[in-house]
Amino acid sequence: MSSRARVIPVTIDTRPAPTGPEEGRGSLRGSIRRSPLTWFFSLAFLLSWAAWTPYVLSENGLGVWHFAFPGAGGSSQLLGVLPGAYLGPITSALLVIGVTEGRPGLRAWRRRMTKFKVSWRWYAVVLVSVPAALTLSSVALADRGPEMPSAVVLAAFLPGLLLQMITTGLAEEPGWREFAMPRMQRRYGPVIATLIVGVLWGVWHLPLFLSDWGGWPDVNATEPLKFVGSAIALSFVMTWVFNRSGGSMPLVMLLHCGVNNYISIAWSDMFPTLSSDDTTHAFLLSSTTAALILLVATRGRLGYAPDATKAAKAANVTQRL
């Protein structure tokens, strides 16, 4: 494993699979093969929002249904939120890949999802930079330094990060980043693709603001907008990490889950004088700053190397001939 970070081209074949006579223009399979991205985004929203409807309507949300989701430690999110998250992006990606690419595509998806072999420096950068950026933005808001985290927080930090990886990270990133981003970048380029995926990723969460996940009923009308803005900004950082690491999904998931884990476990302990609303402000400030720095430093390329990707794909085709 090299200790030097380098650009590794992402070689995902985005061409639709050929259709046979039985899969004509009027068939469902043919439609998915012609428009895989449209089907992925539509299914991701439909499946998640349908699964979240009971949670939103329950006592954990609008209170239309007189039923409350049970939860450990006073949190109902494990049973209320996670099923819809798993039914959305990851399930939609697997369904579309299965239809458009078959078993070879699913095997390639599994290889990309387990691409742990990247430079150790990438892991160090993600593990250090995420809490550092969130701490600096919180210091700016609090106008004072952070307090030393307690022993309980320090002991729970890494287990919490692992739990986030197999819940939030595994539920969301195989769809938004692993499936959608390579295809969107080939069509629109890195900036427009990131903007589209970032907007859709943020909007996908919106029904949850009508539940205790989003602090209902004490939700400020601007909170969802600020959340979507933060999701867009963070998406630019994630695109850069995705492209520069050659599409390492464990690394991308670590970046996403590092934000959630810091806010869930360490933030209130380190900044007890800040309110829960300041969490959103700290997230928005840190992610926007990082996104602007990367856009300027990479001149909008965000580590994307289309020429290298085309050359690698051509080499793969030549090897198969």
Rank of each mutant, 00 (worst) to 15 (best):
T194M: 02
S230D: 02
L163G: 11
A171D: 01
V7S: 07
P36L: 04
G88M: 09
T91F: 15
C257K: 04
G80Y: 01
W176Y: 07
G175Q: 00
A50P: 01
G61K: 07
R299L: 03
T194F: 02
W216P: 06
A140E: 06
L163T: 14
R177Q: 10
R34S: 03
L161A: 07
V126W: 10
G71F: 07
K313F: 12
M113H: 13
S248C: 05
L292P: 08
A108V: 03
L163I: 10
L206S: 14
A312E: 12
A124K: 09
S48L: 09
V237K: 00
L274K: 02
V259A: 06
G84L: 06
A315G: 08
H205R: 05
S211M: 06
P190I: 03
I12R: 00
L47S: 08
L161G: 02
L163V: 13
T114G: 07
L302E: 03
W120E: 11
G258K: 06
S75R: 13
P146Y: 06
S275F: 06
G145A: 09
H66N: 15
E101C: 00
V56Q: 01
W240M: 03
L134I: 10
L127V: 14
A50I: 11
Q164C: 02
A133K: 12
F69P: 06
V7H: 04
A291K: 07
M249Y: 06
D278G: 09
W176Q: 09
R186H: 13
D277S: 14
P104K: 00
L141A: 02
S235D: 04
L62P: 04
W213S: 03
E223I: 14
R301D: 10
N60H: 07
R187L: 09
G30V: 01
T167K: 01
M148Q: 14
V152Y: 13
S245F: 08
L234K: 02
